[in-house]
Design a protein around this nucleic acid. Structure first.
Length: 262
DNA sequence: ATGCCGGGCGAAGCCCGA
């Protein structure tokens, strides 16, 4: 079973890319971020025609996440627990049953946090702490799960083209990386790093300044696996060729292959 | 390069992203 994450930067604009990529990649589940749609405008019919089920947490104009799956999505949970006043659509999770059990998948759009001297940054850190507590509760159940999404976190210096230039940025400053480590250190596996040691493997390139051409990228889209899911990990890859498509998202898909026969 | 792109909204120009 292949499970992917992709920040599409507007599903309205990127729907053809997503449908083409589903066909090309053969992934079973893709977690989307920044769909920028309300639930009512989600192109459910297009995905159903392609053979997929959907779970959506939409919002007007900004944010919005979804899960697209070949297999039925059960026990869908909308929103990250821990703050009822948080009205930003950044989290949806669902369970997928298969022959030998079930796996839970979450689509995460972690707040950007810039500029760091505004309330955006403490919101990011609080959101990360909420995610840590939620992951802790999920881990206690000892189930297979994948937390897939745009984390807006550069984990290490090898994951950015110019670490010095990014040192004070919300995505790379120490406090952010510490908060990310606190989540991973619960016992989660970064699927990409479990499969590849090579530095400078990116999932995002800015639209500006010829960033793609110069390979000025950052690795901020991650698949974090619970121990039972990590035991099933067969491979992981970043589909960077999608960044060459006409009018691309600034993020590309990342996927992992788990040894699950559905 | 704290916005040079690109998208939303809405019909010009501001808000937002990383």
């Amino acid at each position: 079973m292949k499970i992917a994450s992709w920040n599409v930067n507007s599903l309205k604009v990127r729907l053809p890319h997503v449908l083409d990529w589903l066909k090309e990649s053969g992934v079973d589940v893709v977690c989307l971020q920044e769909i920028k749609l309300v639930d009512e405008k989600f192109p459910t019919a297009d995905f159903e025609e392609a053979g997929y089920n959907v779970a959506v947490h939409g919002q007007p104009t900004y944010n919005g996440v979804a899960i697209i799956s070949r297999y039925p999505l059960e026990d869908v949970k909308i929103g990250l627990p821990g703050d009822k006043s948080d009205d930003q659509a950044r989290y949806v999770e669902a369970a997928i049953s298969h022959k030998s059990g079930s796996i839970r998948v979450a689509s995460i759009y972690l707040p950007n946090g810039n500029p760091v001297d505004t309330d955006k940054y403490p919101y990011k850190l609080k959101w990360m702490e909420r995610l840590r507590r939620h992951a802790e509760k999920m881990l206690a159940k000892e189930e297979a799960f994948v937390l897939a999404g745009d984390y807006n976190v550069i984990p290490q210096a090898e994951d950015v083209h110019d670490p010095v230039a990014w040192s004070d940025d919300s995505l790379f400053r120490l406090e952010t990386r510490h908060a990310f480590r606190r989540i991973v250190n619960l016992g989660l596996t970064d699927a990409f790093r479990a499969c590849h040691a090579a530095p400078h493997q990116y999932t995002f390139w800015d639209y500006q300044g010829g960033a793609w051409r110069k390979n000025n990228g950052i690795r901020i889209d991650h698949l974090l696996l619970s121990p039972p899911a990590a035991d099933l990990l067969k491979g992981c890859a970043i589909d960077k060729h999608v960044r060459e498509w006409e009018k691309p998202s600034d993020h590309v898909p990342i996927w992992c292959d788990l040894d699950i026969a559905a």
